[in-house]
Design a protein around this nucleic acid. Structure first.
Lengths: 235, 235
DNA sequence: GATCAATTCTCCGTATACAATACCACGGTT
DNA sequence: AACCGTGGTATTGTATACGGAGAATTGATC
């Protein structure tokens, strides 16, 4: 199941419909993903309930679901906190993402349709404007769309869902990554190289490019991780 | 009404470990994984609650968590059912598992320690007895242990967790797979080949062997999937 | 006889109340 | 003075109650 919304196509407005517990879950997931809630932060059920104008029950359900997806940690009878991430764990997650992305792009290379290929190419070319303008937020969103489009080209919905789930959990770290240097320019170039290898039909090489792309991104993270750790005595 | 019957007298399990909702979640997850609860089965909250001698609240929490991990499907206001799997989705899941296992074994090949290597080899040799005895249940359990041991050799805990999670969701299908023909013998041989490639340090080849190993297993599933679908009008 | 609509009915989603447990502070004892 | 034990408090875990949304059934009309 996808954390950030039940079914992407039926996502008209996040507020009007759906379960209260779902709204709370999405809101908390977003706050954790964007970093507004930092790892280690204690999440008081009653406090969150009053904040959302609800009772504890839907809040509890939301927290339990976030626990399963790994965004929060529940210590029985001891409360729930935003999931702590040691530097090792973050690096593990990043490596996993890199491998999963490589896996996806390899399959996608073999299965992509001409229509999908041109769509992907179109997305890439549109992103050039954001790079030129150094519009980090726009590029961040494009990045998600671009990578998820690749997932779909595997024509394996389950794999795509797994990839999206893992990616969502790294969103908070990825966001800061583009802030560093000319990462955005490099990222765009790497996307182009990946598309080129896909066009050649060389899945293995496309996978290697993707892995390198993801690890390049992760390299820019080291400093951020240290910063997080220094400011967080619990980690 | 099921095997784990109510038996009102045995209200306190010998192992009263922690949260009631956790116990219920584990119990339901096990029943789904083992196939005692078939896909499409409606899960009535009140009914489950009385069966466990609890109220609806912990049952609801358990079901919500199972939803996130994909074992059940919740249609708001329409009830919760054991997750339906179309043949396409099952094949998607199997392919994903195959790729993930291949990914793990590749990394494991590069990072395994001598101690881990001998442990893995020991496991493999012990399993020869089960093969000779055609002890399917024992081999099924060994299989899990063996593959999870490989995950750990990646020295990437997050990746190992992901792999375990995906594997757990396919447990019900994998269980039936060994029943077919001499799959158990082939499986043992394939394990040996994987270990040989790992010993050679050829991660790419080990990954290819693992992928083939997993897809061989999935091939034996086709008939089972059709059977499932025929007996299940909801799918 | 068939179809549509309204009513009822069952189950879910949320709220509130109660019980159990972990943390903390305070005091007594060694 | 330090340590252990006991009691209080706050927060979690569980139970129950209530309102509402779907779905099914039945009746009326065409």
């Amino acid at each position: 199941m996808n954390l950030l919304g039940p079914t992407p196509e039926s996502e008209t407005s996040p507020e009007d419909k759906g379960l209260l517990s779902d709204q709370i879950r999405r809101a908390l997931a977003d706050e954790i993903a964007t970093g507004r809630l930092k790892p280690g932060t204690a999440l008081d059920e009653q406090q969150i309930a009053t904040r959302f104008g609800a009772s504890r029950t839907p809040v509890r359900e939301a927290l339990r679901q976030l626990d399963v997806s790994g965004l929060v940690e529940i210590r029985p009878r001891r409360g729930v906190i935003v999931a702590l991430m040691t530097p090792e764990r973050i690096m593990d997650m990043f490596e996993t993402t890199a491998e999963v992305e490589a896996m996806c792009v390899r399959l996608a290379t073999y299965r992509i349709t001409p229509a999908e290929r041109s769509h992907l190419q179109g997305l890439h070319e549109e992103s050039a404007d954001m790079v030129a303008a150094s519009d980090l937020n726009a590029y961040d969103e494009f990045n998600r769309v671009f990578h998820e489009a690749i997932y779909r080209c595997t024509h394996n919905q389950f794999m795509a869902e797994q990839a999206i789930g893992i990616r969502a959990r790294l969103a908070v770290f990825r966001r800061t990554q583009l802030r560093h240097g000319d990462r955005i320019v490099k990222s765009h170039e790497e996307h182009g190289e990946i598309l080129r290898q896909m066009a050649r039909g060389d899945g293995g090489e496309a996978a290697r490019c993707m892995r390198a792309h993801m690890l390049n991104a992760s390299g820019a993270l080291t400093s951020y991780i240290r910063m997080l750790n220094d400011s967080d005595p619990l980690a």
